[in-house]
Every structure is written in structure tokens, then in C-alpha cells.
Amino acid sequence: MTGNASKTTASFIQISDDDKGYPLDQFCIPKHYEEDLERVLIPEGLINDRTERLARDIVADFGNEPIVVLCVLKGGYKFFTDLVDKIKVLNRNSGHSVQLGIDFIRLKSYVNESSSGKIEVIGGDNLENLKGKNVLIVEDIIDTGRTMQQLLELMTSVQPKCVKVASLLLKRTPASVGYIPNYIGFEVPNLFLVGYALDYNEFFRDLSHICVINSTGKEKYSVKQ
């Protein structure tokens, strides 16, 4: 079974389009980014608590079956790390445990604010190792959904036993193809978000909170084409 819109009952925290977030001066923001951000949308503490609940749901769903957790790099590494750590805590302290394997894949489709329309897959040569296994793909954000659909098609070709997708964020965008992952942290407005390993041309990965980038930041860190 692969994760898709018709076979998921995912729940999430919805952040409305008119959500004002939090002023930057109420949080510790790296000095080098203070002029580049509009507001904090999701504080790190809230991300941490939501990730803990997702970990509990995943362990409950998979039962005692082993799973391979496939991290989508680069943006997914922070959510992936925290999610795996919380599953490991549950393994140590709950009545049953889930054996974890770890693997990585890198996808690239963005330049500045727009998708390039070309999905670059790096490190997929060893996906044959996933044949017959339960796979949990961990992603930072589902935007249009096209990238994840392409990855799921690739996964089908290696014949895993089961594939589910956990995404920290699901963006509401008119460009969406309607794909919904199995596990969702937050549904967010159609904004360009950075922080917690989400980047803008490789910057802002070192920002702890998820924030809205402003026009100054977009200009400063844009790729000249």
C-alpha cells in the first residue's frame, strides 16, 4: 500500500491563512537573519511536541513490524532526526517496539521560489534494498505533491511491502495535485517558509523555528539566472 489521498485519514494542525504568527523579537533569531524574516509561524517547541505525537501514531500503526525510515534530503533531515529519536524513546519505554532501518534519498526541484519542473533524484541507486520491506518516507514539506508522486512511482518499481509518507508540512496551494501524505504535522498557508532545515537556496537551514521569509531575504539570497 502506498500513501495517497484516497487511502489516508491523516490528521493535522491547521494554520489559517490569516494567522499572524509571532513577532521575531519574542524568540531567539540568529543575528544574520533578523532582517530577512517577516515572522515566526511555527515555534520549535510546537514542532517538537507535534513530532512526538506523530511518532506515537507511527509506532501504533506499524505494530511490531520493522520499518525502514527513508529520509528525503536535504530539507527533511531535521524532522527525520527528531522523529526517529522520538520513536527510539518509545521503543525503550512502551510495551512494544518497532525495529528501525535508516536510508536516505535526495530530491531537488526548487530554484528561488519556483519549482524548476525537473525532479533530480540523487542517491536512489540502493533503493532495491527496500524490496519487500515496510518503508516510511520522511519529508519536510509537501507543496504541489508532484515530487512525492514521482518518488512513490519510483518506490513501486522496487516492490516494497508497504510505503507510507510522513511530512512535517502540507502546503495549501492552487498548484496542488491533491496528494495527501499519511502523517502530517501542520497544514500551512501558501507562503514560502524557511527554518527547521527548510531552505531558500540553501540558506536558513540553521534557523530553529519555521518562519516566513520577507522580500529582503528573497532578494539577498536569490540565485541570479
Rank of each mutant, 00 (worst) to 15 (best):
K7R: 06
V163R: 12
F192D: 07
L41P: 01
L198S: 03
C71F: 09
V212P: 06
C211H: 10
A197Y: 05
K20Q: 10
I142N: 01
S11Q: 05
K74S: 08
I13T: 09
N48C: 12
Q99G: 13
G117N: 03
V84D: 12
E35H: 15
P189D: 03
P181K: 00
S16T: 07
P174T: 02
V138S: 06
K220L: 09
F62V: 11
T9W: 08
V72K: 00
D206K: 13
D143H: 04
Y183H: 05
A166V: 04
F104V: 03
I47P: 06
V59T: 13
I141L: 00
E128V: 11
G101M: 07
Q149S: 07
F186E: 04
G178T: 02
C211V: 05
G117M: 02
G76T: 00
T147A: 08
I213Q: 03
Q225E: 11
N134S: 10
Y77W: 14
E128G: 12
N182H: 10
G123L: 01
S222Q: 13
I67A: 07
D82Q: 10
V163L: 08
I29F: 15
N48G: 10
D82K: 10
E219A: 15
L198A: 10
V165W: 13
K86P: 02
K161L: 15
K171I: 00
K161D: 15
L54K: 11
I58K: 01
R92M: 10
S157F: 09
A55S: 11
K74D: 01
L127Q: 04
N190C: 07
C162Y: 15
D103G: 11
S167C: 09
N48A: 10
R39L: 15
P30W: 11
V188K: 03
I58A: 06
I137W: 01
T9C: 04
L107H: 01
G45A: 13
